[in-house]
Amino acid sequence: MKRWSAFAWYWQRISGLLLVIFTIGHYVTVHWSAAAGHEFSSSVARLSNPLWQFWYLGFVVLGLWHGVQGAYNILRDFKLPRAVLLGAMVVLIGAALYFAYLGFDTVLTVHEWKHHP
């Protein structure tokens, strides 16, 4: 148990640093201009490239993992009754799994619009 939480402590910092790199890349490519991020064709072109697909799958997993683990760190500090903490974590992890599925499905199917405008 102790070793596990030490791993979690390191992983929160390392995933955070990785997310900084992902976020800079995301902002530079998608939010450099209004058209780069808000136009259908530029989004489809980006998500038809396997490298960008891989990039965004990683972004979704890291973002959700870091976020849910961070929420756990906050909740744990409040000395909540065990059942409440457990219930909150079930909801958070459930939501993260659902949004990970949604994100993966979006990233991996958007390229189908490339040849059917």
């Binding site: 259908f40 989004s43 489809v44 998500l47 979704v60 949004f99 949604l102 994100g103 499905d105 979006t106 199917t109 958007v110 619009w113």
Partner: peptide, 9 residues
């Protein structure tokens, strides 16, 4: 953000 981008599909 993930929900909004669902519109792409």
């Amino acid at each position: 953000h993930i929900s909004t981008l669902r519109g792409l599909v």
